Amino acid sequence: MKKKGIRDAYGEALLKLGGEREDIVVLDADVSGSTKSALFGGKFPERFFNVGISEANMAGMAAGMALMGKIPFINTFAVFMMLRAGDPIRSLIAYQKLNVKICGAYSGLSDSYDGASHHGNKDIAFFRTIPNMTVICPCDGVETEKAVRECLNIEGPVYLRLSRAEMPIIFDENYQFQIGKGAVLREGKDISIVATGLMVHKALEAAEILEKEGINAKVVNMHTIKPIDRKLIIDCAKDTGAIVTAEEHSIYGGLYGAVTEVLAGECPVISGRVGIEDTFTESGDYDNLLQKYGLSTEKIIYEVREVINKKKGE
């Protein structure tokens, strides 16, 4: 299966947009080789600003540029975007609904060997609680490029959750990406698996295996966490009577929280979750970390079986 790095797709998309829009400026906190914003910087140095290891200043500078009519894309690792730039993002950018695109690279466990200090597994929870914020988590290179382009159609702050990892290509170039609208990738009647980011292709793999056991699973790509596609979630609940979410994020405050908040008020059904348990993670090989913390096809299958049994009353 063909793969492409999410950060590579992002960097290439940003470079293309730079040639189309002179109002785009890019800021990076001294990790442009990692975030791939360096591609833009190499082509448009007059619109590229390396602020150094100064994430809060980067967000403040972006706020000022947005007030002058520019469209800033700010870049650093997801964990530092949340913890170090979080104050000015909340107080300056979001409060004034400024047109800044916030690009959190190396999300989840994808900065694998740098350990807990660099793992961004709580960023969805943080950014989706901020008023005026849109939160997007693409699942492959095609969706990443389309998300980068589409976020320009929103007048206000957008958090793009980007991974270091290569992910299987799921979509072709004809894929229609729409912010706030999830996509059903596989129909099913017994249970719905709602996934985001890396876990989307694992959900598709799980559904194929479950089919052989007689479990017919619907698979949904929920690329936009905020605003969440409420109608699709409710439809899934009504159609299948059970939902399992899957995300490369803490079990608290992320996709599972967003989905079950809708279910609780609109259509309560039995639900399950696949995510990182309430623990600090450790450094190591990325694939090994995914297995250790239960971010696997096998864990999705296990959780689906558990929820199906509860649905049957067993």
Rank of each mutant, 00 (worst) to 15 (best):
residue 129 T to W: 04
residue 230 R to S: 04
residue 187 E to Y: 06
residue 94 A to V: 12
residue 135 V to M: 08
residue 118 H to S: 12
residue 143 E to I: 05
residue 196 T to A: 06
residue 304 V to M: 14
residue 260 T to Y: 00
residue 208 E to Q: 07
residue 39 L to P: 00
residue 213 E to Y: 06
residue 164 R to K: 14
residue 123 D to S: 07
residue 208 E to Y: 07
residue 209 I to A: 09
residue 17 L to N: 13
residue 173 E to R: 05
residue 201 H to K: 05
residue 253 G to D: 00
residue 226 K to P: 01
residue 27 L to G: 10
residue 36 K to L: 00
residue 173 E to A: 05
residue 104 G to W: 13
residue 33 G to I: 02
residue 37 S to C: 13
residue 243 I to W: 08
residue 203 A to Y: 02
residue 1 M to N: 14
residue 202 K to N: 09
residue 184 V to S: 08
residue 110 S to E: 05
residue 175 Y to F: 15
residue 77 F to D: 06
residue 43 K to F: 10
residue 140 D to T: 03
residue 116 A to S: 15
residue 234 I to V: 14
residue 169 I to S: 02
residue 124 I to T: 06
residue 305 R to I: 14
residue 278 D to A: 13
residue 181 K to L: 09
residue 262 V to P: 07
residue 120 G to M: 05
residue 42 G to T: 06
residue 251 I to L: 08
residue 310 K to M: 14
residue 69 G to Y: 10
residue 295 L to N: 09
residue 55 E to H: 08
residue 301 I to P: 00
residue 81 M to P: 01
residue 47 R to A: 13
residue 85 A to V: 02
residue 44 F to H: 10
residue 163 S to A: 12
residue 231 K to H: 07
residue 314 E to K: 14
residue 288 N to W: 07
residue 314 E to G: 05
residue 17 L to M: 15
residue 256 Y to P: 06
residue 163 S to K: 01
residue 64 G to S: 10
residue 57 N to F: 06
residue 52 G to A: 08
residue 257 G to F: 11
residue 56 A to R: 03
residue 103 C to A: 13
residue 216 N to R: 09
residue 106 Y to L: 11
residue 234 I to Q: 02
residue 14 L to A: 09
residue 117 S to W: 08
residue 313 G to T: 12
residue 262 V to N: 09
residue 70 K to E: 14
residue 1 M to V: 14
residue 22 E to V: 07
residue 273 R to F: 11
residue 79 V to K: 05
residue 224 T to I: 08
residue 49 F to N: 09
residue 257 G to D: 12
residue 251 I to C: 05
residue 245 T to R: 04
residue 204 L to C: 11
residue 169 I to D: 08
residue 282 E to R: 11
residue 269 V to K: 01
residue 85 A to G: 10
residue 195 A to V: 07
residue 261 E to A: 15
residue 308 I to T: 09
residue 301 I to C: 01
residue 190 D to K: 06
residue 176 Q to V: 06
residue 52 G to F: 10
residue 161 R to V: 04
residue 140 D to L: 06
residue 145 E to Q: 12
residue 187 E to S: 12
residue 170 I to Q: 03
residue 78 A to D: 02
residue 38 A to H: 04
residue 171 F to K: 04
residue 5 G to S: 15
residue 228 I to W: 00
residue 233 I to P: 00
residue 98 L to K: 11
residue 13 A to E: 12
residue 209 I to Y: 11
residue 277 E to F: 15
residue 19 G to F: 05
residue 134 T to A: 13
residue 260 T to G: 03
residue 189 K to N: 11
residue 270 I to E: 07
residue 7 R to P: 08
residue 291 Q to H: 09
residue 276 I to N: 06
residue 304 V to F: 13
residue 150 E to F: 00
residue 134 T to L: 04
residue 5 G to Q: 09
residue 210 L to G: 00
residue 211 E to Y: 05
residue 178 Q to L: 08
residue 35 T to P: 04
residue 163 S to R: 01
residue 114 D to I: 04
residue 219 V to D: 04
residue 133 M to P: 06
residue 20 E to Q: 13
residue 149 R to W: 12
residue 296 S to G: 10
residue 172 D to Y: 03
residue 86 G to K: 02
residue 215 I to S: 10
residue 255 L to R: 12
residue 51 V to T: 15
residue 287 D to G: 14
residue 258 A to T: 03
